[in-house]
């Protein structure tokens, strides 16, 4: 059974193919309106999420399919102590494909070992979030017209930010990528990501704490939120949450075709005044997320049919 647990489950060719299908969906939505007629997507969200769950549900509806599921662990049998394995075995009887979010790292992998339908990892704690990475890649491709020869800045929480780790892994497979890591010392990219991904693939990278100093170099600026839920210690969260706030002043030295991405939700790390700047791509990014999830649902259902 083909599932998507990590972005590395997909080859570069498969990612390019998903991006191509997503672009075709954007151009020809009617062609896809009945592709999933009679199919059901189960959204099993053991952790709250607005964007990802609604994006999956909207994606399935736009493919002509139906959706069932739950949006928090308390409204599922997990509250009674049911294991992930038993939950997905049960839901496999009702649905053709499952999108799962879980606070524990590795839960979707466990699900994929037991389910009889494809599992899409919709986020497992601070670990993987492959459909966000697909969203980011589609957005970069649409905004810049390419996925190679780019200088990409990641700013904010690079330690716990799963979207950052996954996107770095995905971009490391393209050529001409330079990564600039901008974070406070306490939230630096973990050394294993640097060792296993950047050094392994000979990716040029720079670490800095100074966003404004590197701003003129950037083709892409990927902003992140410092996530309260990833900290065991509230004091550390409060000390670090306002480390980087992107304002119009800080953008003065940026390229005119810079693309600013953010996985959202935003708290205050991007000033609202930037939203109307054409370089702000984060709401277009949300829309792209729906289209690439449509492409993914189609691919997994077709491969497993």
């Amino acid at each position: 059974m083909r599932s998507l647990i990590s972005i590395l489950d997909l080859s570069v060719e498969e990612i390019d193919e998903l991006i191509a299908v997503a672009n075709d969906i954007i151009d020809n939505p009617k062609k896809y309106a009945e592709k999933c007629h009679g199919k059901k997507l189960a959204t099993l969200f053991f952790e709250p999420s607005t964007r990802t769950r609604l994006s999956f549900e909207a994606a399935m509806y736009e493919l002509g399919g139906n959706v069932l599921g739950f949006s928090e662990a308390q409204s599922s049998s997990a509250a009674k102590g049911e294991s992930v394995a038993d939950t997905v075995r049960t839901v496999s009887c009702y649905a053709d494909i499952i999108a799962m979010r879980h606070p524990k790292e590795g839960a979707p992998l466990v699900a994929s070992m037991k389910a009889t339908v494809p599992i899409i990892n919709a986020g497992d704690g601070g670990h993987n979030h492959p459909t966000q990475t697909l969203t980011d890649l589609l957005t970069i491709q649409r905004e810049k017209g390419r996925l190679n020869n780019l200088t990409v800045g990641f700013c904010g929480d690079l330690k716990f930010g799963r979207t950052v780790h996954s996107l770095i892994e995905a971009l490391s497979r393209y050529t001409g990528i330079k990564i600039i890591l901008i974070s406070p010392d306490e939230l630096k990219l973990p050394s294993y990501v640097k060792q296993d991904v950047l050094k392994k693939h000979n990716i040029e990278y720079v670490q800095t704490t100074d966003l404004e100093a590197v701003m003129p170099e950037l083709d892409i600026l990927y902003m992140t939120r410092v996530q309260r839920e990833r900290f065991f210690n509230e004091e550390d969260y409060l000390r670090l949450k306002d480390s980087y706030i992107l304002t119009p002043e800080k953008l003065k030295t940026a390229k005119s075709d810079l693309a600013i991405l953010h996985p959202l939700p935003r708290v205050n790390e991007i000033a609202v005044a930037i939203d109307d700047d054409p370089r702000a791509c984060y709401f277009r990014q949300v829309l792209n997320g729906k289209f690439v999830r449509m492409a993914l649902i189609l691919k997994l259902l077709e491969e497993n049919s």
């Binding site: 992930v84 524990k104 839960a107 466990v110 704690g125």
Partner: peptide, 8 residues
């Protein structure tokens, strides 16, 4: 402590 093996 965040691994699925801690709860299952």
């Amino acid at each position: 402590p965040r691994c699925i093996t801690t709860t299952e």
